[in-house]
Every structure is written in structure tokens, then in C-alpha cells.
Simulated assay, not measured.
Amino acid sequence: MKSTKTGWIRRALTSTALAGAITVPLATPAHAAYDTADGCYVSIPFVECSTSPSIYPHSTQHWVLPRIWVYGTALCPVDWWIYDTYDGKRVRSGTVAINNYRSFTVYNLNASHRYQLILKSYTCTILKAELRNWT
């Protein structure tokens, strides 16, 4: 009787493990592939930092998504630039007020060029920055 229970349990666990090993996740838009460039780890005020490596914008819509984390509880103004590594120029820029985390989208980029995010804050520490494209 004991060997029958043990055998049944063993077969159930083995088939469950095999089913889990061969399961293929389905791709959904929420989990589409993306490139990420990151950097600016604990960048102190007045120091310019950037993400690395440079990445291409979204393949059909030509945008990138900067994501920025800062240390502090008050609003922190952060200057940002999208740098075109092909031309060596800053192609977009602005200032965003951040309270811990902020993301935004930059549109109308050249699909054949690669880009980096450059940041500078005068009042707070930048904890991390990312540039993504969800191709």
C-alpha cells in the first residue's frame, strides 16, 4: 500500500515538473522585448551622468522612454538630454520635476541612430536612470 501511494505521488510530481519545464510563455504587448540602457547610479548634484550603452528607438514608432529615480521627498528638478551618438548631438532636452520616480516618452527620433540619456541635477542625488525602447 505504501509503495502505491509513493509511486502515484512520484508520477504526479514528475509529470508536473515536466509540464512546467516545457511550458512556453505567450508574448503579449505588456511583455514585449525591449532594449535597456542604464546608468547614473548615485550621481551626486552638479555632476552630469548618462546611460550606457546607446540604444535604437522603437523600431516603428521612433521613441524612447527615459525612467529616472531620485533620492528625496521634495520635488527635484532634473535637466535631461537625449544624445544622438551617431551625430554626436543633443537632439531633445528639458527639465522634469521628480519626486522619487518619473518616466516620460520622447518621440520623433531617427530610427537608424542610437541614443543615450544624459542627466544633471542641481539639488538632489540621481539614484538610477534607464532608457528603454520596447521594440
Rank of each mutant, 00 (worst) to 15 (best):
G7E: 14
K128N: 13
R67F: 11
V42G: 02
S121K: 01
L109E: 00
R132N: 11
W8T: 10
D84S: 10
D79E: 13
K128M: 08
A27W: 09
S103A: 14
T14Y: 14
W80I: 03
F104T: 03
W80S: 04
F46V: 07
W81A: 08
V91W: 09
I118L: 13
A37T: 06
H31Q: 15
Y101V: 15
P66R: 01
R11W: 05
A19I: 06
T95R: 11
A33I: 10
A19K: 03
L127T: 11
W80L: 03
L117R: 03
T23Y: 01
E130H: 10
L65N: 15
V47M: 09
I9G: 04
V96Y: 01
A17L: 07
C124M: 00
D87H: 08
D35M: 07
A27G: 07
G72L: 01
N108I: 09
W63M: 08
Q116M: 15
A30W: 11
T95A: 03
C40H: 09
I126R: 00
S59N: 15
T23S: 02
A111K: 14
S59T: 15
L131S: 02
T123Y: 01
V47Q: 09
G20C: 07
T51P: 04
T135V: 12
L119K: 04
L18M: 08
S103M: 13
Y122R: 09
A19D: 06
N110M: 09
T14A: 14
A74T: 08
I82Y: 05
R11Q: 00
K89H: 05
A74P: 00
G88Y: 05
A74F: 06
S50P: 02
P77Y: 04
M1S: 12
R92I: 02
Y107H: 13
A111T: 10
R67W: 05
F104I: 01
D38L: 07
L131W: 06
V91N: 06
F46R: 02
H31C: 09
A12T: 10
T16L: 03
A97Q: 03
V96G: 01
Y115T: 04
N99W: 03
A17H: 01
P53Y: 06
E48N: 11
N110F: 07
N100Q: 13
A37K: 00
S93P: 00
R67C: 05
Y101P: 08
K120L: 13
T51N: 05
A12C: 07
K2R: 11
G88L: 05
A19P: 02
T125A: 07
S43C: 15
S59Y: 11
H31Y: 10
L26P: 04
S3E: 11
T85C: 07
